[in-house]
Design a protein around this nucleic acid. Structure first.
Lengths: 120, 120
DNA sequence: CGTCGCGCTATGAATTCCGTAGCAAGCTAG
DNA sequence: CTAGCTTGCTACGGAATTCATAGCGCGACG
């Protein structure tokens, strides 16, 4: 079919997702956030809203095809919304998720200095 | 000699990673966790340690090639360790990360029931 | 020896992602 | 009206990643 190109379905809690048939919300989340640029897009929206092109630039020039896929999935899952002339931004529940991601950014600083990060 | 196959390099804080040249730890983390199965592997190790095959089964039969890649990356970044005859498990700092991921699982339950997941 | 489970590799195909180019629509100014 | 600009997004070919399946080498049994 492919109305346009590819109509990949965004992972939605309550339905089976890639890698899990259980339908547990956490599995849908792990699938959604495990896609390339998904976490980064959310991260770059943590502050103010951004237009498509501003978001693309913030994500180090990610290709618009992929960005559009991620943004659509994040909108379908309700984490991101669009406003007329306002660009993209986090929805209320999306902002809740980011609130949990913030301490992880702080953790990553400790991680960077961690001695357990040995290479081999 | 790491691998006969292409040994992809794990993202390491302090060095440029895919999609970001800044070297900021949070970018390395977003790259590391944005790879397929990475979050899921950490999630399945949140409890007790698991052997390679047990971990594979827990992840709905992910292919061993990918699992080995993820596990190697997670080990190189110090989040996961291996014990002789003990299988894979979280390192101390890895357990710190999971502590932050736990409330996100609780959040996902609220997300699943969220009405904002229906609009647009 | 035969068999088992283990960690892990090999391989070819399917899917996803990337980089670049460019279109249609909505301005704004001349 | 026409030219020039920005914005959201699609097209396309090629590169990278992920997938499913088969199977190797090893050690522990019996």
């Amino acid at each position: 079919m492919a109305a346009t190109r590819k109509s990949r379905t965004a992972p939605v809690p309550g339905k089976p997702v890639r890698g899990s048939r259980s339908g547990r919300p956490v599995m849908a989340l792990l699938d959604l956030l495990g896609r390339r640029w998904a976490l980064r897009v959310l991260w770059e929206l943590r502050g103010e809203r951004r237009t498509f092109r501003a978001l693309q630039e913030a994500c180090d020039g990610v290709s618009p095809a992929v960005l559009n896929d991620r943004v659509r999935e994040l909108r379908e899952s309700g984490l991101v919304d669009v406003g007329e002339g306002e660009g993209y931004g986090l929805s209320p529940i999306g902002r809740e998720l980011l609130a949990h991601l913030a301490p992880i950014a702080a953790w990553s600083e400790r991680w960077a200095a961690s001695p357990s990060r040995r290479r081999r």
